[in-house]
C-alpha cells in the first residue's frame, strides 16, 4: 500500500516520470524521496539543510547530503538530473532567482512549490487586520519566519517570463489542498499554494 504524503508532495511525485533521476532540494524527512524511490523507481537524491533531517533520511536508506540550496547546487554538473525539486523552500532562499537558474542548469526540469502571498486570506488579514498575515501555509510570526522572499503566483509567473523559463505545468491548490481550475487572475486570489514544473527554453 502506498503511504500518504503531503498533498503538494503527491502532486510533485505525480509529475515525475518513473525510472528517472531526481534531486530533492530541502528534502526534510525524506518522505517524497522515499515515495519516489519505492513507488516510481526513481534514482532520487536529497539535499537538506538540517543535519538531523539528513541523518534521519540516511538511516532510512535514502541518499542525502547536508547542503544549502543557495550555495551547494553549484557543486553539481550540468544536466545531472531529469528533475530538480524544491518543495516549499524557494521563499526561504536568499537568492531565489539564482537558485532557480541553478536548478534548471543541474536538471532538465525544475519542480517548484510555494505558498501564494496573494491568497485572499492573506489579503484580508493585511487589509483589515493590519498585521502581518498568519495562515495555515504561512504559520510564522513576522519575527521568526524563515520566509524572506515571499511571492504571489503572478509574481512567480512574471519571474519565469523574465528568466525565459517555460512553464510546462502549473497546479494551483485551494486552502483545502485541492487543485482548482480558474483563470490566472482568480487563481492568484483563491490559490493558497502552487506547484510549477519548469523547463529551460
Amino acid at each position: 500500500m502506498k503511504p500518504q504524503i503531503r498533498v503538494d508532495l503527491q502532486l510533485i511525485a505525480d509529475m515525475v516520470e518513473p525510472a528517472t533521476r531526481a534531486l530533492d532540494v530541502g528534502c526534510g524527512d525524506g518522505s517524497l524521496l522515499a515515495y519516489l524511490v519505492n513507488f516510481k523507481r526513481v534514482d532520487a537524491r536529497g539535499m537538506e539543510l538540517s543535519q538531523a533531517g539528513v541523518n534521519a533520511c540516511v538511516a532510512n536508506g535514502l541518499s542525502v547530503v547536508q547542503g544549502d540550496a543557495d550555495t551547494d547546487l553549484r557543486d553539481y554538473p550540468d544536466n545531472a538530473f531529469d528533475y530538480v525539486i524544491l518543495g516549499q523552500t524557494l521563499q526561504a532562499t536568499r537568492e531565489p532567482r539564482v537558485v532557480l537558474r541553478q536548478m534548471l542548469r543541474v536538471g532538465r526540469r525544475a519542480i517548484v512549490s510555494f505558498p501564494n502571498f496573494a491568497h485572499w486570506q492573506v489579503r484580508l488579514r493585511m487589509m483589515f487586520g493590519g498585521r502581518m498575515p498568519q495562515t495555515t501555509s504561512l504559520p510564522y510570526k513576522w519575527y521568526d519566519t524563515p520566509n524572506i522572499h515571499l511571492c504571489s503566483i503572478d509574481d512567480f509567473r512574471a519571474l519565469c517570463g523574465e528568466m525565459g523559463v517555460s512553464i510546462e505545468r502549473a497546479i494551483v491548490l485551494n486552502s483545502k489542498s485541492r487543485p482548482i481550475h480558474m483563470p490566472p487572475l482568480l487563481a492568484n486570489v483563491f490559490g493558497e499554494q502552487a506547484v510549477f514544473m519548469l523547463r529551460r527554453d
Binding site: 537524491r45 543535519q51 535514502l62 547530503v65 547536508q66 551547494d72 553539481y76
Partner: peptide, 17 residues
C-alpha cells in the same frame, strides 16, 4: 569529498555525527 562526488554526480550520502 562530498562536493567532489556531487560534481561527479555520484550517489552520495553524508552524515556528520
Amino acid at each position: 569529498i562530498v562536493q567532489a562526488l556531487n560534481a561527479a554526480a555520484a550517489n552520495v550520502s553524508f552524515v556528520e555525527i
